[in-house]
């Protein structure tokens, strides 16, 4: 029994990086309708930048912020240059996803070429461990969970209480109506890309601190869980993404604890496939004609 309670503890820790990623993903996806398959590659980018910043002697937390800012810049750059060009040419939803896939391959293999396919490992001194019943947290793990919770509260507050947040939600629901009522939607979309990129870099960094290794493909192992969480929690809903991430983190760790670690993520994907097939409301649309507007 204790094994399973411990697994729940590990699940909460794993959920911190999934939740950060999923919140960024859902924010951007809900607003622009571009299914950003390149999110995994940019997470790797954030993780690598954070690692490099940590190498220069920066504290790991400051390095994490650095990774977030750098990823934010990269995301905005690729959105405003490449994605915008293809969106203006009238690329369909699926073609936009293919474009982000292409960008992802370029980012990932550029990193792999520069780092010569190396995997770097990270060492962080652990000072204290805390026990909560049978669950043991190290200082660092506790900090990661707190970071994710704080970011969630800030983001949710930002979306619900501030003017910019309200404008963001309005643009996500109906960009034309939002523009007609005086919202500078272009600026709102820029803000969404920046925020999403920042969270993406943060998620990559947090994931690296959690598993203590980083290479060009680190983000890929997290990407599928992030997409699963974002889509399960309804595209655009930060609360839904956070809750789904928590459930997924715990579920995958429970499956591992039950002795089927090879199937841990297969379970998560299975859940997603079922959710997508069983909840046609949130994913409905023309099979062929795209009736969803892309705003980049």
């Amino acid at each position: 029994m204790n094994l399973y309670i411990e697994a729940i503890g590990f699940g909460v820790i794993a959920a911190s990086s999934i939740a950060l990623g999923a919140m960024g993903f859902t924010l951007q996806f809900g607003l622009t309708n571009v299914l950003n398959v390149g999110y995994g590659a940019t997470m790797s980018f954030g993780a690598i930048v954070a690692y490099a910043a940590h190498l220069t002697g920066m504290s790991i937390w400051l390095a994490l912020i650095c990774g977030g800012i750098a990823t934010s810049g990269l995301t905005l750059l690729s959105a405003k240059t490449l994605l915008r060009v293809y969106a203006k040419r009238g690329a369909a939803l699926f073609e936009m996803a293919m474009v982000t896939f292409g960008i992802a391959l370029i980012v990932e293999y550029a990193i792999a070429s520069i780092t010569e396919n190396n995997t770097f490992s990270l060492t962080i001194a652990i000072e204290h461990t805390h026990a909560l019943g049978p669950i043991r947290f190290t200082d660092v793990q506790l900090a990661l969970v707190i970071l994710a919770v704080v970011v969630f509260i800030l983001l949710d507050g930002f979306l619900r209480l501030t003017k910019v947040g309200t404008a963001l939600r309005a643009t996500a629901v109906d960009p034309d109506l939002a523009r007609a009522s005086g919202i500078a939607t272009g600026r709102i979309v820029t803000i969404a890309w920046l925020l999403s990129g920042f969270l993406c870099g943060l998620a990559g960094g947090v994931f690296t601190i959690d598993i203590l290794t980083v290479n060009a493909f680190t983000g890929d192992s997290l990407l599928s869980l992030v997409i699963v969480a974002a889509l399960m929690g309804t595209a655009g809903s930060v609360r839904g993404a956070a809750l789904a991430a928590l459930l997924l983190g715990i579920a995958t760790q429970l499956v591992s604890a039950a002795g089927a670690s090879g199937y841990a993520s297969a379970v998560a994907y299975g859940v997603l496939a079922v959710v997508l097939l069983a909840r046609p409301k949130s994913v409905q649309g023309g099979l062929v004609a795209d009736r969803v507007q892309i705003t980049v």
């Binding site: 699926f94 997508l276 969803v292």
Partner: peptide
């Protein structure tokens, strides 16, 4: 009736699950 990009995701997920099950 599923949005085309979501349909792509479901297919992608099928591929990932299959690879994972076969390798395990």
């Amino acid at each position: 009736r599923i949005r085309p990009d979501f349909q792509a995701i479901i297919m992608l997920v099928v591929a990932i699950i299959a690879a994972e099950v076969v390798s395990t």
